[in-house]
Design a protein around this nucleic acid. Structure first.
Lengths: 345, 345
DNA sequence: TTGAAAGCGCTAACAC
DNA sequence: GTGTTAGCGCTTTCAA
């Protein structure tokens, strides 16, 4: 049993079977309005019956679009590779793209050299119609290049230091306000925060939300803020450790990242603190992980998969000329949980 | 300043500039041995000078290869999206592929429906030359299909229930043996284990390694094994919780997964155990995360990025006809650390 | 509303 | 060794 021959049904085959010309098949399949409804239906039927699948290479060669978009992972080493959201973001992107019959091509540019190669390639030959990317704003040369060249691009997470860039982000400020307000609501008087890098939009915005919530209650900033250098578990641990030493009376903590929260929690337990008896805690999480039982903590749930999907949708709209530069903010949800951690309840 | 025109330098342009025919340019650029060295050099030089970049669509249409390979994420929802290794695996794959000028196309098949669509597409039209995939062996219909159709595929992690499939995996057995032996070496007398799903190669193999190490010391299995239903943090927590209740005298634990270890650690702390004073602990980790300070635990370090790279390399070799079905086992390293967790040292 | 003809940029025979 | 000649399977004018 040798490999079955891949049926190479072409538009010409469909045309022959349907009794029309090959260009008419092309028009019908591409939704050209000039094709008579009866013809279209006959063609669609024949194509389906014959199991026709378009040859992307031919389409790309003849047409003006590549029908594929690129996803660039350009974050600095320590960030992205510890970014637990990448798979989910990809799932969201993929969902949207496959619905529109676009291919998703992956590019990894961890260092300057990779970026240069990408820049060179893109500048000379358009391999994809546009880019989606996750960046930590450190190694942003590729993004800058894309914007200069006016190559369509949509970024995940508000990028700092760029004007006129399309991006999709979750409501970081709103989420941080809700988290902080929640801690105050349940009676905390000394609320601290571990925020993400000041070089990132989410890091800055979540801190802003925390401060806004304090201000709204007429509380003054007690300085119990740790600005993590990255989003990793280590920084969460280090941050919590430091906060506990500098602010022994802390009775509430908001850790603005999933791994930061894990690390912070670890430090709390190491210090013998019981959550929420000694210290109330709110973290960040993927909304898809909302059912997670450990840590059974209050968290701000972000729609990560939808973030990816919306990024793709926004890019496709731009490519279709329906939209110029634009932003999109996805709502988050505060997910309060009343479990105890640090000892058995 | 409008968008600079993408220079559409074709082989014909290079040919003209170099004073040869277009097919000769094709041969030179593709390393055809029949081209005279002097001609080749002249052509390469001209191409470089003109900034020539090949048109992949044209190459694919005219040739017999698509010059791109697919990466399929086919794991069951709960598994993959919590799989912390995906980004690193992708990095490794990308490294190898870009070195060979191949594109990486992503496919996501979370459910039966996605898989059917993929199967249908692949059976009718070859979009990529081969596939790389991560699977949890539950939703393995796509893999089965690929094998039946003799589509080249390389799997990451030993897949259960398949014969004649190429895969790359780390030395799970060796790692588990080393981990268990280490616990015994440092004086543990009651060593338990939390292993991964019995439907996965690594889950089975790591358990086998643990048992082999016990046997080698003449110890009999004390039954202190928790078989996690997935690799998530929750299962680690649940497993540790259960082990502690059923085996109160446990003084050593081997958690055979990164998230399993995190969860297990959490449960240990929750139960008031101090690591390593009360219980010795060995987890699994990405070797790239070896510098991680929390948890500062002994671990089996896996070369995850290299796993991806080797997967790609193996597939490319198969496509080049250099190799048939084959396996590759990457060595792991036991990384003993002597830190304390659960209280300040 | 449809067909005929041209051509996208490359690879692959086949000559010389 | 190198040039000539044919397509690959589409999209896109241009006629009809």
């Amino acid at each position: 049993m040798s490999r079955p021959t891949i049926s190479t049904i072409t538009m010409a085959d469909v045309a022959r079977a349907a009794g029309v010309s090959q260009p008419t098949v092309s028009r019908a399949l591409n939704g050209d309005a000039r094709v008579a409804t009866s013809t279209r239906l006959a063609i669609l039927d024949t194509a389906e019956r014959l199991g026709y699948v378009i040859n992307r290479a031919a389409r790309t060669l003849a047409g003006s679009s590549t029908n594929s978009i690129g996803f660039v992972i350009a974050e600095h080493e320590a960030h992205v590779w510890g970014n637990p959201y990448i798979p989910r973001i990809i799932a969201g992107i993929s969902k949207e793209l496959s619905a529109q019959d676009k291919q998703l091509v992956l590019f990894v540019a961890q260092n300057r050299h990779d970026q240069d190669r990408l820049i060179k390639d893109v500048s000379r030959r358009r391999t994809v119609d546009g880019f989606l990317m996750i960046t930590d704003n450190r190694s942003d040369r590729f993004l800058r290049f894309l914007l200069e060249q006016q190559v369509p691009v949509v970024v995940g997470g508000r990028p700092l230091g760029f004007k006129q860039v399309s991006y999709v982000d979750v409501d970081n400020i709103g989420g941080a306000v809700a988290a902080t307000a929640h801690l105050l609501d349940v009676g905390c008087t000394q609320v601290g925060m571990i925020t993400g890098p000041r070089t990132t939009g989410p890091g800055v915005d979540r801190l802003a939300g925390y401060r806004r919530a304090l201000r709204a209650r007429g509380l003054k900033d007690n300085g119990a803020v740790y600005r993590a250098k990255d989003w990793g578990i280590d920084e969460g641990y280090a941050g919590m450790h430091r906060l506990l030493h500098e602010h022994p009376k802390l009775d509430g903590v908001f850790a603005a990242g999933e791994l930061l929260a894990l690390g912070a929690l670890s430090a709390l337990r190491t210090a013998g603190k019981v959550v929420p008896d000694d210290v109330r805690f709110v973290g960040f999480d993927d909304s898809a992980a909302a059912s997670r039982s450990d840590p059974p903590l209050s968290c701000v749930a972000q729609p990560v998969e939808e973030l990816g999907q919306q990024m793709a949708a926004l890019l496709l709209r731009r490519l279709a000329g329906e939209e110029k530069t634009g932003h999109l903010m996805l709502p988050v949800q505060l997910n309060p949980r009343a479990s105890s951690v640090g000892k058995d309840r």
